[in-house]
Amino acid sequence: MWEATGYIGLFFSAFGAATLLPLQSEAVLVALLWAKQHPSWALLLVATIGNVLGSMVNWVLGRYMERWRDKRWFPVSAKRLESVQNTYHRYGRWSLLLSWVPIIGDPLTLVAGLMREPLWSFLALVTFAKATRYGVLCWITLGWA
């Protein structure tokens, strides 16, 4: 029972951290690695899957948010939206390799949906970026433990 609780907590913290919520999944992963009750490869897999699925929520939101851009309550000005779109055009899909970076990564996945980035390339780049980030974190943590 306790083993599943660690995986579930890690999954939801990673999922939430990838959305626009201010959560930190790295602390949960490090704590579980230090506890040494779960295989590190399984923790890496759960964190990556949760984080990528959270990023997909952003992608879906971005995919459909432009239909409301003319509403008064729309959270982004037309000028800011155009600026973001121009930036994404300049750097393209490869900018998704930065989806792991705090502060810019989550909005970047939303913009990818807004810019109609195909799901297959979105998933490939975001999964690579997020798995690499968690992999490096596991490597550093296990080196210290």
Rank of each mutant, 00 (worst) to 15 (best):
V101Y: 01
L97W: 01
Y134W: 01
A18K: 10
G92L: 02
Y88G: 05
F12V: 00
E3A: 08
A129E: 09
N51M: 07
L32F: 12
Y88M: 14
W34G: 13
H38P: 02
K71W: 08
M65Q: 11
W100F: 14
A4Q: 10
L114N: 06
T141R: 10
V28F: 06
G62V: 10
Q37G: 12
S13M: 07
K36T: 10
M115R: 13
F15G: 00
W2R: 09
V136G: 04
K36V: 11
A31P: 00
E82P: 09
L29W: 00
V46T: 12
I8W: 03
S55C: 05
T127I: 05
M56I: 15
A4S: 06
N86I: 13
P75M: 08
V101I: 11
A27S: 14
L21Y: 05
L110P: 05
N58F: 01
P107M: 01
M56H: 09
L142C: 07
D70V: 05
E66H: 14
V136C: 03
Y64E: 11
V126I: 10
R72T: 08
L29H: 03
A112P: 00
L21I: 11
W41P: 07
T132F: 15
V84F: 02
A18M: 15
Y134E: 04
G54R: 04
T109H: 12
A42D: 10
G92D: 07
A47C: 02
D106P: 07
A18L: 14
F122R: 10
S55Y: 05
T141C: 07
W144M: 14
Q85Y: 10
W144I: 15
L10K: 01
G62E: 10
W41K: 15
L23A: 15
G92H: 06
A42R: 09
W34F: 13
F122T: 14
A4W: 01
P39N: 09
Q24Y: 05
Q37A: 08
A35F: 02
R69N: 09
N58E: 10
F128H: 11
S40W: 04
W68N: 06
A42N: 05
T127L: 04
V57C: 13
L110C: 10
I49L: 05
H38Q: 15
A4F: 02
V28I: 12
A145T: 13
G54I: 12
Y134T: 14
W94M: 09
R93K: 14
L98R: 07
W68M: 15
L108M: 06
S55W: 00
W100C: 13
G92Y: 01
A131R: 14
R80V: 11
W94G: 14
Q37P: 04
G9H: 00
E117N: 10
L108N: 07
V52P: 04
W139V: 08
G54D: 13
Y88P: 05
L123Q: 02
S25W: 02
I104K: 08
N51L: 00
N86L: 15
W41A: 11
L23V: 08
P118K: 06
M65S: 14
